[in-house]
């Protein structure tokens, strides 16, 4: 890896930080201009005007917007996102509780998307215009056009209610204690603690929501990979590989796939990040105690600190995913990795 490569990553880190500042200002202002007095909503109709005024004072709501923002940033640097008016706990505690559940769901769905979507796309491209291709294309189209919450309900009905082979809701069965928290991912924590039955329980709970969340991404990834690999099949270097007798499997999984991944990886990264949005519906259907549900509750309750905290975390997630994708693209593409001039 060249030093220019790390320099590029460094620049990306800085721009990401700038984007976060921008997002925080934006969401900070938006949260404050939605009508309704947050203090009044939080305290309920029975609170006295003095109590409301006291809370407004504590939240700096009587100051001008710039002053409020300054206060917010000052507290942020002390690792404090303020109190949630909805849960009455520090927002950081809330996020610490709910984020791992969502991340676990999204990461599982992301793994499914890559592990199922890419091979399907490669298979379709390798057997272009044959039966395999048509079947894959039909299935992936189905995955793309069917909304995530329909998948969620559909999967739940079939596997949880009708076949009764997978649990209906939640992260763990009743009576099963969460494993000692290290990562907050119940599956991984259970493995780390060697609690096999807890792992099995957590795993069986995540299968349906993760699949429901992943299906759109799987379809999208399969279509993207198919198109991209099919295009590289027309490149002279693939014909050269064929003329030199490289095996079809090796050509499909290596010589055609690797160049084909470069353009599709960026879009796959966006699809993956977008799963965080789709996660809300899935969390709602499967009663999954995640951040997406928390975020919606904070908005409904005009919980200023909760809204800003949630949005910041989601933005940071997008930026991190984006950066990881950029690194992966650079790793796949020697032209970027070596930062030389582009030739053709």
């Amino acid at each position: 890896m060249s030093s220019t490569f790390f320099k590029t990553i460094g620049i990306r880190l800085w721009t990401s930080a700038l984007v976060l500042v921008g997002v925080s200002i934006l969401i900070f202002c938006i949260a404050r201009v939605i009508p309704g007095d947050p203090a009044r909503i939080a305290l309920g109709p029975n609170a006295t005007q003095e109590q409301v005024e006291l809370l407004r004072e504590r939240l700096h709501l009587n100051e001008s917007l710039p002053v409020q923002y300054f206060e917010f940033v000052r507290e942020l640097f002390q690792g404090d996102l303020g109190m949630s008016l909805y849960t009455n706990r520090p927002v950081t505690t809330d996020i610490g509780d709910f984020l791992p559940a969502t991340l676990e769901l999204v990461v599982f769905a992301g793994i499914l998307m890559v592990v199922v979507g890419i091979p399907l796309g490669v298979l379709a491209a390798r057997y272009r215009d044959k039966l395999t291709d048509n079947v894959v294309r039909l299935l992936s189209l189905l995955g793309v056009v069917t909304p995530t919450f329909v998948w969620a309900v559909f999967l739940m009905l079939i596997f949880a209610f009708y076949l009764e082979i997978l649990p209906v809701a939640g992260r763990l069965s009743q009576g099963v204690d969460p494993p000692p928290g290290v990562t907050g991912f119940y599956t991984i924590d259970a493995l780390l603690a060697g609690q096999w039955s807890t792992f099995g329980d957590a795993f069986s709970h995540i299968i349906l929501p993760a699949t429901a969340l992943a299906l759109t991404g799987i379809g999208q990834t399969a279509r993207l990979t198919r198109a991209s690999v099919a295009e590289t099949y027309d490149k002279p270097y693939v014909e050269m590989a064929q003329a030199y007798g490289f095996s079809d499997r090796r050509i499909a999984s290596k010589y055609a796939l690797r160049p084909a991944m470069i353009p599709s990886l960026t879009i796959m990264g966006l699809d993956f990040a977008a799963m965080l949005g789709g996660a809300f519906l899935v969390e709602a259907v499967f009663a999954w105690p995640g951040l997406a549900r928390y975020g919606v509750e904070t908005i409904l309750h005009k919980d200023l600190n909760g809204i800003v905290g949630t949005v910041l975390v989601i933005s940071a997630f997008f930026l991190i995913v984006n950066m990881l994708v950029d690194i992966a693209v650079a790793w796949l593409n020697p032209r970027i990795r070596l930062q030389k001039r582009w030739a053709g």
Partner: peptide, 10 residues
């Protein structure tokens, strides 16, 4: 065309 006959990422 020699340059396009060689795989760009290997």
């Amino acid at each position: 065309d020699p340059t396009s006959a060689l795989n760009p990422v290997f």
